[in-house]
Simulated assay, not measured.
Amino acid sequence: MRLIEWAEEQGRATGKDFLRLDCLVKNATLCGYYENAGFLPAGEAHVEFKVGPGATGENHHLQRLEKALRVPDEDLEVPDEEPQEEHGDDSDDWNEAVRASHPVVAGLRLVWREYRAPTAGGEGARGEEPSFGMWTVADNLVTLLSQMTQEDFDRHDERMPYFGIVWPSAEALVMKLLAGPRLDGLRVLDLGCGLGACGFAAAQLGARVTFLDWEPRALEIVEASAREQGLPPDLLDFVVANWSTPPDLDHFELILGADLLYEKRNAEGVAKFLGRYLRLGGEAWIVDPGRPHVRLFPTQAKMEGINLTAREILAPKGHGPAITLLKLRKPRWRRLHHVQARREGSSRPPSK
């Protein structure tokens, strides 16, 4: 990581706008590591490598990753150590708290960040702009990694602190939600919530939200954000669990998931989770920055009785890649029984 930091410094010093590196597509863990360090997918390539003169080359499938070295001023939402001006309206009392200090929760320094609905023609999507603030981790990924022991690395690579970063896919889904209709009274699950950006967007729109992540520190920060926002405690639940071995949960009208499919092996577990916990007629919104294996997810979801209803491309932030939104729905009982019957070997749905 120090080498990457050095390369970033050299790139900025020489006026470059982007830093690029390539990684083997099959090494999903390493690709995910770099994405959490701020790199975004920028296409793929097949490259032949030869070792030594006269050697036979091997063809390798590479993921190209890029990181912007210059961020436009308008994209900066979080102030540095000492903010130079106030953010938000005076009526929003919670916009004032961070704001110069960095409270520590779960052993991590935090900073306040705000989201607002996209505007059209200078007006909010519904006449006023829904907005919310949340705590995010002030330290970069290098600092988070330095807090891990070698035993942590050896035990499980997924214990790397991915939760401390709001992924571009989550930011795109937040904007999609805030620009959409109200969710009053709907039961919504933020699956693999991380710092909870998608769930807080749903809560801002009136939903009853459950935040689920297997990282306890993430849920501590989410709870701190909820307290700071002043959200009604009876409308929120916080669950520490793995989607592959979930506890007993209610069924949900809407399940949100951002960057859940960063590894190909996750698809089966996510599909089974949706099949189990989506209410009949409920929807799942899954977003991803275009990983190749995600194209297969609708097929896996269909095996669990979940159908793809729409595929949308969401506008990226800055110079990032376009984000793919998969909208999936659990059919109502007749079609669902038909799927189950087919899986059991029957050629037609059961009669009434």
Rank of each mutant, 00 (worst) to 15 (best):
D80S: 11
E77N: 01
D75I: 10
S91W: 07
L144S: 13
S169W: 00
T143I: 07
F153D: 08
T136Q: 13
D157S: 14
A179C: 03
H87R: 15
Q63T: 03
H60G: 01
G185E: 01
M134Q: 14
F153G: 07
S101L: 14
D92P: 02
P72G: 04
V104I: 06
L173I: 01
A179K: 11
F153Q: 13
V98N: 04
D92I: 13
N59K: 15
P118I: 03
V78L: 05
M134L: 13
L178V: 09
Q84E: 10
L186A: 04
D90G: 07
L65I: 09
G185P: 00
G164H: 07
R113Y: 00
R109Q: 01
Q147V: 00
L141F: 10
E129W: 00
R113L: 02
S91I: 06
A138D: 01
D184L: 01
R99S: 08
E86P: 04
E58H: 12
D93W: 09
D154R: 14
E66G: 06
D92C: 11
G192D: 13
A179Y: 02
L62M: 13
E58W: 05
Q63I: 01
S146D: 10
S91K: 12
K176T: 11
G57L: 02
Q150C: 01
R159F: 10
P103M: 10
D190K: 06
D73P: 00
Q63W: 00
L145R: 14
T119E: 08
L110H: 02
F163P: 05
D157Q: 15
E96C: 05
N140T: 09
W135P: 02
V71I: 14
E81F: 04
L108F: 05
G180S: 14
V104Q: 04
S169P: 00
S101N: 13
P83C: 04
G121W: 06
E81S: 10
A170I: 06
V188M: 07
M175G: 13
E85D: 09
S131H: 08
